[in-house]
Amino acid sequence: MRPKLPRTIWMLGLTSLLMDGSSEIVHAVLPLLLVNGLGASVFLVGIIDGLAEATASVTKIFSGALSDHWQSRKWIAAFGYGLSACSKALFPIAATPLAVFFGRFADRLGKGIRGAPRDALVADWVAPEHRGYAYGVRQAMDNMGAVIGPLLAILLLQLYAGDVTPVLWWAVVPAVLSVSVMMIGVQEAQSDAPRVARPFPLKASELRQLGRPFWLAMGFLFILLLPRFSEAFQILRAQDVGVPAAWAPMALVVMNLVSVPLTPLAGSWSDRVGRNKVIGLGFLLLIASHVAMALATGPMLVWIGAGIWGVHLALTQGIFSALVADHAPAHLRGTAFGVFNLAAGIAIFVGSAAMGFAWDQLGAGTAFALAAAVNALGLVLFLLSRRA
């Protein structure tokens, strides 16, 4: 019997669903706008997406630390959601790749501000033995938004005959609803412990309290995450093998449709068998996804690769969060999530830039094959480090 989760967890999930639905509408059409409409190279798409994600991750370390220092998580997260909602209005009026970058920068800055406090808030509300399930539920609702968003993008592209501008305006609506749910439905966790003044967590003396195992894990996770580059490359790969541009976002739909039902189950499984086994299996499947994408000459292997990528996400996304919460002292949870997301963001930036460069220079198939090789090396190092 699965545990009953507090209402705030479900409200956080609904907030994530709405905002991710909005973001995925944008994400589904933005690569097509950049490459087909604004003449950007695939390498530039990788740079823009990688820099945007890195921005989010750098910001998370500060927002997480502030949520620990101020002992308040909701309002920092709400500000981040609000900033992302406002950024959605920048995309429909963008006329250059630079303007798109500024929109993505603002959107991901908002994501960075909200991410660590929100993830720490989940741990504040849920007992340790149910964290995997709780993070899985929140992540599944987030991924549900990632199914709905690209589907809406495809339908709207058909409705507006391929014109992306009105599609981007529609993305503003769920973003505003997301902020409303966050403000009204989410509550801070109540603690019996007295509030005491704490030093700002981003000091060497405070960071050392996270412990050597935590820092070693961050180093190996950085290597592991290098080949998990921007999902924009799935859309471009679909178009590359002949899928019409208006249907290319279906790769994201397939990926997230597979991920949604499996994510809570994977989280609950990690509560029973341990996080490392589930994470290792997840990255083994990512290798298979890259291989399928590398070998694709038509849509079928692209859809299969996207579906395997979805299983990979189910076995890793929420479980990473549970793993961080397991290792972090309660008063440094926000900081720990910030450190983890900083490492993840830098890895994804490097991976996205390298993927875009390899695609332009060597071709899509070779680029995905190289990603599979890097992924295999990272998995071996991760498994050896956890055994040690």
Rank of each mutant, 00 (worst) to 15 (best):
K4I: 11
L17Y: 08
M19Q: 05
S22E: 01
E24N: 11
L34D: 06
L34E: 07
V35I: 10
G37K: 10
V42A: 03
V45C: 02
L51V: 05
A56H: 04
F62Q: 02
S63K: 05
R73W: 11
I76G: 01
A77Y: 02
L83F: 01
F91M: 15
I93N: 06
A94M: 08
L98V: 11
D107R: 03
G115K: 03
V122F: 06
V126D: 08
V126S: 08
A127M: 12
P128E: 15
P128R: 13
Y133S: 03
V137M: 12
M144A: 14
V147W: 01
G149R: 12
L151W: 09
L155P: 00
L156M: 12
L157G: 02
L159R: 14
G162N: 05
A171Y: 08
A171D: 00
V179Y: 07
D192C: 04
A193S: 12
P201T: 02
P201L: 10
A204T: 09
R208Q: 15
G211R: 07
G211A: 10
R212L: 14
L216K: 13
R237I: 01
A238M: 06
M250V: 06
N256M: 04
V260G: 06
P261M: 13
L262E: 12
G267R: 02
G267S: 05
S268Y: 10
W269C: 04
V273S: 10
K277Q: 12
I279Q: 04
M293S: 01
T297Q: 15
P299L: 03
P299D: 09
L301I: 00
G305E: 11
G305A: 13
G305R: 08
A322I: 08
P329F: 12
H331L: 09
G334N: 06
T335F: 07
I348P: 00
V350M: 13
A353V: 12
G356L: 06
G363P: 10
G378W: 04
A388Y: 09
